[in-house]
Amino acid sequence: MVKKIALSVKNLNLWYGSNHALIDIDMDVYEKKVTALIGPSGCGKSTLIRCFNRMNDVVDNCKVKGAINWKDKNIYGKGVDVIEVRKQIGMIFQKPNPFPKSIYDNVAYGPRLQGVRGKKKLDAIVHKSIKDAALWDEVHDRFSDSAMSLSGGQQQRLCIARTLAIEPEIILMDEPTSALDPISTSKIEDLVFELKKKYTVIIVTHNMQQAARVSDHTGFMYLGEMIEYDRTQKIFERPKKRLTEKYISGRFG
């Protein structure tokens, strides 16, 4: 079966001032698959994932060269609507960051910003997003409660529901479970598995077993370079590069 490419990274380089943080990155991210980025701290995986929806634009002294092609255009090209890019390529962060509002309002926030009006329409979006984020059973009878009253794992799934409400194509997750307990982690992992039926997911994780469990493709990064990028089974069973083997076996990093 031919895999469709969702994002294509071509010769991407990024500098924070004089620090060359990403070096000649080339990779294709496949549609409706989970791609994991692994590597030791400071290797550039979070920088790379932030490139996918141009979040590095807000960093001072950040310079990007190369291309990330999405829907036949370079998202770093001239005339690209960054707001549209970030709408279509949503991000979930390491620490759950719900707004200090009700559960309902958190999910309805994005659609309201986009001009969706009418309770019926908003209800439909909120209900669907919360169901898709596997949170319905736990919150359907308390939508008006504060989002801050939820547990860490529930808050993270609420953030996922908030992202889903604006119907993105690609979901970026930057260590989405590192602040969660094992049960919440397992729920998020199950959710990622479900999400890939509809969305392309890119996940940064420090947890090697998590990358092995949830992803279809894995990229190992080191000192700003993509050392090896392949099918996850291959990376964890038979990596080509000695450095990858040493890292995933826990012998450095």
């Binding site: 077993q209 990596p239 083997e245 995933i248 076996s249």
Partner: peptide, 10 residues
């Protein structure tokens, strides 16, 4: 205890 991968796992 260690969830080994690659050569260790094999």
């Amino acid at each position: 205890l260690y969830q080994p991968v690659a050569t260790d796992m094999r």
